[in-house]
Design a protein around this nucleic acid. Structure first.
Lengths: 341, 341
DNA sequence: AAAGCTAATCTAAACGTTTCGAATTAGTCA
DNA sequence: TGACTAATTCGAAACGTTTAGATTAGCTTT
């Protein structure tokens, strides 16, 4: 900018005023400045600017895994929204690891991001302090943390799973295997209660042996399904609480020489673009990813636009059961408890 | 930092020296500083630091679409690599739009990223100037631009498609539909020549009516496949030059009441996690995404670590045909040219 | 013609670091 | 003891902007 000022024979203040339109600058000087900028190929240094004005027009976004199609989509939507609003987004993937998350949030905060979107990992308590210290607005995505004062957008996980399990029950399934992750993140907890309540609602007892929990990865889904399907009276249906694990589960089904939906019905959380193209066409719970992403972005943008003091908001969206053909109705006879080899 | 210095009754220079380990600072002052930092909850302002030292430890990454599984994976790998190296990554999605790309690169450069990874969009010429002006190292990913002096890592697209088409020819297919995108990006060009050469190699004539090009999106794949499969003597196999388009193509096949591989064999570029779980298990060309991501990151990191003057490097990796069951051998009779309704 | 406006431009301080070189202190050696 | 060296610590300038307030010039008004 100094060079531009010299070349245009004006002060840097005038150049700044011209660029930002802060003050009117005469036709004459405008012309000289414009030309100098062009000749020199000057670009404003956003770092210096940020230092001065105290805002970076950058936000931080951390998710567990970008390869999980739910997060892929949500990240994509969020990215677009901030792009439109003139913000850059720094993306971090925690890989479901608490240390990574800590480190990355610290990194983002150091870099003076204007806001933070966090799909957290690990125990909520850890994050509470971090969030409260960060004096930038944060919105929690998908996974909440209790009694921390920040905006959040989540799914009605309980209801969504309740619906899905009820659907299976209506088809006549009684032994429904449930593959989940650790309960230290809210969605897994809420999804589980949906399972519970659906069983309860149908007057069925809860059988602990039908629940397997892993670490949310494909491999965990594989082992979980392997175990479930090796039970003496194996479940007639399997519900997977996330998408990566269902891939593992399907592989287990394949490797055991079973097939879906003939031998075992399957439903999973999170829809994906291929679901209705290949067979079996998986019945899934679709989250409204577009809405989730947009709402998340707009909550944060609202704060960034100055609405700092409003009480924290909690948006709850509804999932939708996408019924396809991975679940088959059971004959009346097979309902009760038995199964065949 | 000023506050820390005051609280510890030392100068800011000493605090800085302590934090960075630039100079030895006595046990006594170290203790006071440490305590002051803790009490105040001080975090170094990376923006101010960047301004001074002229480096942001941030890189920019632009890809067309993060939802395309190839890019999802590559982004994921790259992100991890830079995370490990202590860099943040700013992610931009151009949505295959040239203006977006221009704007985003400008934005990233303004923000003084230390380096840039670009999977470009649109005509190469546009980018050439931008890349040459940016005085940070850039590495081109997947899509090259001619005669610009920068590192790049690409796939041997020609060979990969040659192999895939040859595989189809060996199965007896003679009329192979080809769904592609505009030829202003190198991979689409190179993939096409692979198709050409495989036909040539088999002594077959090139039939323009079997080639449809769209805009790389799912919808384009759908229309392309619709058109191909409505031809009087429709192709017995379809090759899709990217992944999103094959989803569309599969939907077209389904909507026409056809099935794969019985009525039409299918191969697509880019593997995806579900490929061997659902039916038909799609035969694909798998790119070594892990290697691509890591090589890309390491080329850039090498430059960032000071190796600025080395001549630009071009890494070419090999694709691999993942043979599954979406292609069926044709009976000797059906080979020549005819087909059934 | 002096005073008062308005519009345009400029000077200089500030943002929070790093870093150079100077200053201080302590220790060592002749 | 005094000079020299080494180890610490510090003052102040610099990075490239923004911005408050000062200055100047050109008009208008009385």
């Amino acid at each position: 900018m100094l060079h531009v000022a010299e070349a245009a024979r004006v002060s840097v203040a005038t150049v700044s005023a011209y660029i930002n339109g802060t003050t009117t600058v005469s036709r004459e000087l405008s012309g000289r400045i414009e030309q100098a900028i062009r000749e020199i190929g000057y670009k404003r240094n956003a770092i210096a600017r940020s230092l001065k004005i105290g805002t970076t027009r950058t936000i931080g976004l951390t998710v567990p895994h970008i390869t999980n199609p739910f997060f892929t989509d949500v990240v994509s939507v969020i990215q677009q929204a901030f792009d439109r609003a003139g913000y850059a987004v720094m993306l971090c993937c925690t890989d479901e690891d608490l240390n990574n998350q800590d480190e990355q949030i610290r990194l983002l905060l150091d870099r003076m991001v204007d806001g933070l979107i966090i799909a957290r990992v690990g125990d909520g308590a850890y994050l509470k302090e971090t969030v409260e210290r960060a004096n930038v607005p944060v919105v929690l995505l998908d996974r909440e943390v209790d009694d921390v004062d920040s905006d959040r957008v989540v799914l009605d996980n309980h209801q969504a799973v309740f619906d899905a399990i009820t659907y299976l029950l209506d088809l006549g399934h009684r032994r429904i295997g449930y593959i989940t992750g650790a309960f230290n993140i809210t969605p897994m907890r809420d999804r589980m209660t949906g399972y519970h309540e659906a069983l309860l609602n149908a007057g069925l007892a809860f059988d602990q042996s039908l629940v397997r929990s892993g670490d949310l990865h494909e491999a965990d889904g594989y082992t979980a399904a392997m175990q479930l399907l090796s039970l003496h009276d194996r479940p007639t249906a399997i519900f997977s609480a996330n998408n990566p694990m269902v891939v593992g589960a399907m592989k287990a089904i394949r490797d055991l020489g079973l097939s879906c939906p003939e031998d075992v019905s399957v439903i999973c959380f999170d829809d994906f673009p291929w679901a209705d193209v290949f067979n079996p066409q998986l019945t899934t719970i679709a989250q409204p990813v577009q809405a989730i992403g947009e709402q998340t972005a707009s909550l944060l943008l609202d704060r960034l636009n100055g609405n700092r003091e409003a009480p924290s908001r909690r948006l709850v969206l509804k999932g939708r059961l996408m019924v396809r053909n991975s679940c088959r109705p059971l004959q009346a006879g097979a309902n009760t408890t038995a199964s065949v080899a």
